[in-house]
Amino acid sequence: MLRHSPSPDLVIIGAGVVGAACAYYAARAGLRVAVVDRGPVAGGTTGAGEGNLLVSDKEAGPELDLALLSARLWRELALELPQEIEYEAKGGLVVAAEDATVKALRGFADGQRAAGVDAVEVGPGELRELEPHLAPDLAGGFHYPQDAQVQPAQAAARLLAAALSASPGVEVHLGEEVTEVLFGPAGELRGVRTERRDLLAPAVLNAAGTWGGAVAALAGVGLPVLPRRGFVLVTEPLPRVVRHKVYAADYIADVASGSAALQSSAVVEGTPAGPVLIGATRERVGFDRSLSLEALRRLAAQAAALFPVLADVRVLRTYHGFRPYLPDHLPAIGPDPRVPGLFHACGHEGAGIGLAPGTGVLIASALTGAAPVLDPAPFAPARFAEAPG
């Protein structure tokens, strides 16, 4: 028998870091919030992420503006939330093997600086001062002090716990799949149904990550979210041989690419616990969870090319997940004009952890009618209003 929970103001579908951040900022705005997820907290893309909080890989534009807002909010959250989120302001280092690539990075950084990014060019000798174990034949690069990292699953859990503390009207329902979006007799949105209960609310937020398109379809609208599979290698614990988040310049092009083919560009970083994380691959293969030896081989070779010291280090495990990809590389954040009361916060691809706080603030503003802290128009789901359902 279905149970009717006390009516919240908002139901959030998805307990990843984006849904958790939206719950946190909505609760702080005084809203009663119910979060529902078919699995555990951070059971999808968030739990398979590296915890990147990057501004370095984003060109000047709306996504960078959202990343800069989120970077500031993450710094604030690191002071407010328990230390378990493992916030580390390690900074990023983008390196280039050729002078022509350094020149291209210089133009990229000029646009970023105009938007408020701190980007410092470093020559070959200075690279080795920042990262002593880097390959010796690199042409130069750029240091980004604003890049940081969190432990993503812990960050999601702590944000949800903080939401519960911020408001007695917050509830979390895990292990419950939303099977239906509910509508009233006049076609008005009324909430959602799971196998255990009806959660009635005038507003529903789709924060389902890679499954955002399927949730949108439950509400009768199309949202072209596609999964992009990515792999990560985890090495044995090491002394801190990698101090920053280090990646080759071609990673920036991979992030911006719409190709479905396998793309691989090493992103290498140490962790407080000792293991080195090595990403990142991208490919559109649906929800195929099979292991790609080619992807793993590419990552290992590229990481060893950047850091020769890693060539003989043991890889203890690998993991992979699916990034929620939208065709224009911008997330969908805000109200859906096709269904009054339906909101979206999904499609962040590989940047969801970094962009989560800014997304939460934009959603809270949209729900309460408060003035947004930045222009939400580039992220408006209305741009997909003509997308086929």
Results as ranks from 00 to 15, higher is better:
Met1Cys: 14
Ala15Phe: 03
Val18Met: 07
Gly19His: 00
Ala20Asn: 06
Ala21Leu: 06
Cys22Val: 11
Ala23Phe: 01
Tyr25Pro: 03
Arg28Lys: 15
Gly30Phe: 08
Arg32Leu: 11
Val33Leu: 06
Ala34Cys: 10
Val36His: 00
Arg38His: 05
Arg38Phe: 03
Gly39Ser: 15
Gly44Val: 07
Thr45Gln: 10
Gly49Val: 06
Asn52Arg: 08
Leu53Met: 13
Leu54Ala: 02
Asp57Gln: 10
Glu59Ala: 12
Gly61Pro: 01
Ser70Phe: 02
Ala71Ser: 14
Ala71Tyr: 03
Trp74Gln: 04
Glu76Met: 12
Leu79Asp: 14
Glu80Leu: 11
Leu81Asn: 03
Leu93Ala: 05
Val95Ala: 05
Ala97Gly: 11
Ala97Gln: 06
Ala97Cys: 07
Glu98Gln: 13
Ala104Lys: 14
Ala104Asn: 15
Ala114Asn: 12
Gly116Gln: 04
Asp118Ile: 15
Ala119Ile: 01
Pro124Asp: 08
Gly125Trp: 06
Leu127Lys: 05
Glu129His: 15
Leu130Pro: 10
Leu130Met: 14
Leu130Glu: 12
Glu131Pro: 01
Pro136Phe: 14
Leu138Thr: 01
Tyr144Ser: 01
Pro145Gln: 09
Gln146Pro: 01
Gln154Asn: 14
Arg158His: 13
Ala161Val: 07
Ala162Asn: 02
Ala166Trp: 05
Ser167Tyr: 07
Val172Lys: 03
Glu180Gln: 14
Gly184Asp: 08
Pro185Lys: 15
Gly187Val: 07
Leu189Thr: 04
Gly191Met: 09
Val192Ser: 02
Asp198Gln: 14
Ala201Glu: 04
Ala201Ser: 07
Val204Gln: 04
Leu205Trp: 02
Ala207Trp: 00
Ala208His: 04
Thr210Gly: 11
Thr210Ser: 12
Val215Leu: 08
Ala216Asn: 08
Ala217Gln: 14
Leu218Ile: 09
Leu223Val: 05
Leu226Asn: 12
Pro227Trp: 01
Val232Leu: 10
Arg240Gln: 13
Arg240Trp: 13
Val246Ala: 00
Asp250Gly: 09
Tyr251Met: 15
Asp254Ala: 14
Ala256Ser: 11
Ser259Met: 09
Ser259Tyr: 09
Ala260Asn: 11
Val268Leu: 09
Gly270Gln: 02
Ile278Trp: 03
Glu283Asp: 12
Leu299Cys: 09
Ala303Asp: 02
Phe307Ala: 00
Val309Phe: 08
Asp312Lys: 12
Val313Trp: 04
Val315Lys: 00
Arg317Trp: 06
Tyr319Ser: 11
Tyr319Val: 11
Arg323His: 10
Pro324Ser: 11
Tyr325Lys: 10
Pro327Asn: 10
Pro327Gln: 10
Pro327His: 11
Asp328Glu: 15
Asp328Leu: 14
Leu330Phe: 07
Pro331Cys: 11
Gly334Asn: 02
Pro337Leu: 10
Val339Phe: 05
Pro340Tyr: 09
Leu342Lys: 10
Gly347Gln: 07
His348Asp: 05
Ala351Tyr: 11
Ile353Glu: 01
Ala356Trp: 00
Thr359Ile: 05
Val361Glu: 01
Val361Thr: 02
Leu362Asn: 03
Ala366Thr: 03
Pro372Gln: 03
Asp375Met: 09
Pro378Gly: 06
Pro381Arg: 02
Glu386Trp: 12
Pro388Glu: 15
Gly389Ala: 15
